[in-house]
Simulated assay, not measured.
Amino acid sequence: MKIKPIIGISGSIIVDSSGNFPGYERSYVNNDYVESVIRAGGVPYIIPVTDDEELIKEYTKNIDCLILSGGHDVNPLLWEEEPIKELGETFPKRDRFEFLLIENMLEEEKPILGICRGEQILNVYFG
């Protein structure tokens, strides 16, 4: 029996602006990532944003591969640049979260795929 790979997908947080719970934070990832992993034969796991380093270690131990998903702009202060007026919204907590994911995936010697923002955060991480 072939075992399907567990593919972690870095999530983000969106603030609900409508419905019964405006102002609530929701963990999410765009469904295209989930569907793409399924079509490729993997089992998608959405990894919610956290600053708990032990929890991040557990996430990386339990997945076979990581997709760093798209989203907010990466904070330019991470590579010692000043923000410019064209900069979109940044999410420093997610920047730190994904740095820790990358660090732990490297320790585990597991592959990482960066898409859009994910590719950018990899480039910043590696200088």
Rank of each mutant, 00 (worst) to 15 (best):
C65W: 09
R39K: 15
D16E: 15
G42V: 02
P111N: 01
E35G: 02
I6D: 04
E89F: 12
T60A: 07
D95S: 04
K61I: 00
V124I: 13
L100I: 04
P76Y: 00
K110P: 11
I56E: 02
F126Q: 08
V37N: 10
Y125K: 02
G41I: 02
S36D: 07
C116R: 05
F126I: 03
G70Q: 02
R39N: 14
K57T: 05
S27R: 03
T90I: 15
S36T: 13
V29E: 13
N31S: 11
D95K: 06
L55I: 05
I63Y: 05
V29A: 15
N123C: 08
E25M: 12
E86A: 13
E107C: 06
I84N: 14
P83G: 10
L87H: 09
V37L: 08
D73I: 08
K57S: 15
D52N: 15
Y24F: 15
E109D: 13
F97L: 01
E107A: 13
D73A: 15
P111H: 03
L66F: 05
F97D: 01
G127L: 07
P48F: 00
E89W: 11
S36G: 11
M1A: 13
C65D: 02
I63C: 03
K2N: 13
I102K: 01
G41D: 05
L100F: 14
G88H: 09
N20W: 02
C65Y: 13
N104S: 08
N31I: 07
E109I: 00
M105A: 06
E109C: 03
F21S: 14
V49Y: 01
E86Y: 02
L87K: 08
D64F: 00
R117A: 09
F99A: 11
E103M: 04
G19C: 10
L68D: 05
K110D: 10
G8C: 09
L113R: 09
F21G: 06
L55M: 12
I121V: 05
V74T: 03
E82N: 08
